[in-house]
Amino acid sequence: MSSRARALTICAALVLALLLTAALAPLPYSLAYPGPTANVLGDNKGKPVITISGADTRRTSGQLRMTAIVATGPDAPVHLPDLVRGWFRADEAVMPSESVYPVGDNTEEVARHNAAEMKESQDAAVGAALGQLHRSARDVEVTLRLADIGGPSAGMMFALGIIDKLDGDGSGGELTGGRTIAGTGTIETDGSVGPVGGVPLKMRAAHRDGARLFLVPKAECSQAVAERPRGMRLIPVTTLKGALDALKALKSGGSVPSC
């Protein structure tokens, strides 16, 4: 073998070794998928999601479904072939690990963080809903239970569920009009609705579970429009009052905002 041939062989071997190293090295990304949805007006694992005492509640026939994503954990390695596959699939998303898990280096730490965020979100949802209805937390006690799902992104749907249970559409009917409505968005006690991550995957989860109406934070409309499932209607939201007004207009045949 000539010296040139040996040099080419060595270079090829080095390139192959680098490619193999790149393919096998763990990367700072997570793969996310459409996760579970849950009807906040119904039961979860045999227990009501919303329990209210100190006030009369209404029967509901429609559904308000919160949505979630699932993702590979911070201690689960993701490699280059996984990312390449995820980039080309509509039912997967490649996301930086720090955007999915901003706190925690392992599954247990992440679970504790998500549970704490869920509790804060639930407290804010109760405050926002009772504030919208001009009711006092001293008189009305609201308990929220939703097992195995964490994070703050169900806040708006919790608040809407509480309002539907207590007041419906405010004129004797239920807020949903008997429809299955899904959505996502954080909530503050003043009723402001904030953006969340993973909207395209959450829309797919909602579509899979029967929803054709999706409440989405207005700041994420452009991404939602670009990737919405066929037949899904998007309603932009910036406040809890805006979401209520849109749902009431949907029932009455009035003007409903759209992305």
Rank of each mutant, 00 (worst) to 15 (best):
L14T: 09
I187R: 00
N114T: 08
I181N: 00
G254P: 06
Q63G: 03
L8N: 07
T72H: 07
R65P: 13
Q122L: 09
D56C: 10
L24D: 08
R138V: 14
A246P: 05
V142P: 02
G194Y: 00
V256L: 13
G183T: 00
L166M: 11
E117K: 02
V15I: 09
T51M: 10
G191I: 12
A38V: 12
E109G: 00
Q122C: 12
M157H: 04
G54A: 11
A219V: 14
P48M: 15
D245I: 08
F88L: 10
L8W: 14
D91Y: 04
D164M: 09
G46I: 14
K218T: 15
L41P: 08
N39W: 07
S61K: 11
V199P: 06
S2W: 07
V103L: 06
W87I: 08
A211I: 08
G170A: 13
A137G: 13
T60N: 10
D56L: 15
L175M: 05
A17S: 14
L244V: 08
L130M: 13
F88I: 12
D148H: 08
G173P: 12
I52P: 05
L166S: 07
P77K: 07
G35S: 02
S97I: 10
D190I: 10
L80P: 07
D209T: 01
P257T: 10
P217N: 05
D105E: 15
V40A: 09
E220P: 06
N106I: 15
G86C: 13
R230S: 15
Q122Y: 05
L80T: 04
G185R: 01
L213R: 01
A7G: 04
S258W: 14
I235C: 06
A224N: 01
T186I: 03
D75W: 05
M95V: 09
A13H: 12
D164Y: 01
L16A: 11
K45I: 11
S53Y: 13
P81L: 04
V40E: 06
G150T: 12
K202M: 09
D148R: 03
T67M: 09
C259T: 10
L31Q: 03
A124T: 12
Q223F: 08
E117Y: 01
L146F: 00
V94P: 11
S53K: 07
R59T: 07
D105Y: 14
G254M: 14
